[in-house]
């Protein structure tokens, strides 16, 4: 029993320094989410903490504030989540071989596979004498702790102060724009990014913003366009 404890402690020690960049990032973004939730959307202070424990999907949690403020459309909420989080399918596919053989807390490792945790666990190699399973587990757990802490502090802070916050909701636009730009700078071809912007804008112009009706046609058009363009896009990738 004590040997397991020692193994876990060694893994936690080895994992912690790697998570420091995520610590600052998640505290900041989690706090922004918490403040937005309680200050602009008037949810109770504990709501951001609860959502961050149960849902734990950064950008989708921002989007879900907007969904909760709108009309009751459960299937739409599900579709929206599937589309927004579709990239996690790709993370899962990438981690199949790494996570499949794990024996401890595998379900939690898959549950906590956010963008940032993925970026660490896909690239990091633990030191020789550290258990890989527990190492990746603590990376995942520490990251979620940072996010929950940020969201909780933000939720409490937002419910205590009474500031003029007109325009604070722009933090979500800025965040998603920054994530889009990060990806833009990394990719060699912008076809998919531009399809996402263009087809969604077109759908919004056609259907209008009411009840988010434009989202589903936009998703369908994106998938159809990607299927049609598969040959040229994959040809370009192979070159």
């Amino acid at each position: 029993m004590s040997s397991t404890k020692a193994v876990r402690r060694a893994a936690l020690k080895a994992a912690f320094p790697h998570t420091l960049p995520i610590l600052t990032g998640y505290l900041f973004l989690g706090a922004s989410y918490g403040i937005l939730s309680s200050l602009a959307y008037r949810f109770p202070w504990y709501f951001p903490a609860l959502a961050s424990v149960c849902v734990y999907a950064g950008s989708m949690q921002f989007v879900s504030l907007e969904l909760l403020a709108g009309p009751f459309l459960p299937l739409h909420a599900l579709m929206m989540t599937l589309m927004v989080n579709a990239r996690h399918l790709f993370y899962g596919l990438t981690m199949l071989d790494k996570y499949k053989p794990l024996r401890h807390r595998k379900g939690y490792l898959i549950f906590g596979l956010t963008d940032e945790t993925f970026s660490l666990n896909v690239t990091l190699e633990p030191p020789m004498d550290v258990d890989r399973n527990w190492f990746m587990y603590y990376i995942t757990l520490l990251d979620q702790c940072y996010w929950v802490t940020g969201a909780t502090l933000g939720g409490i802070f937002g419910s205590l102060i009474h500031l003029e916050v007109k325009g604070l909701e722009f933090v979500m636009t800025a965040l998603l724009l920054v994530i889009f730009l990060e990806n833009w700078m990394k990719e060699t071809r912008h076809t998919s990014s531009l399809l996402g912007l263009g087809l969604t804008a077109l759908s919004l112009a056609l259907f209008g913003p009411a009840n988010n009706l434009f989202i589903i046609p936009a998703m369908a058009a994106i998938i159809a366009a990607l299927a049609l363009l598969r040959r040229p896009l994959e040809g370009g990738e192979a070159q």
Binding site: S59, V63, M83, V84, A86, R87, T173, L176, L177, I179, F180, N183, W184, E187, H190, S192, S193, L194, L195, G196, L197, G198, L199, T200, A201, L204, I215, A218, M219, I222, L226
Partner: peptide, 9 residues
């Protein structure tokens, strides 16, 4: 990338 573009809009 397309999903990120969708989110911006």
């Amino acid at each position: 990338p397309a999903a990120l573009g969708l989110l911006v809009i």
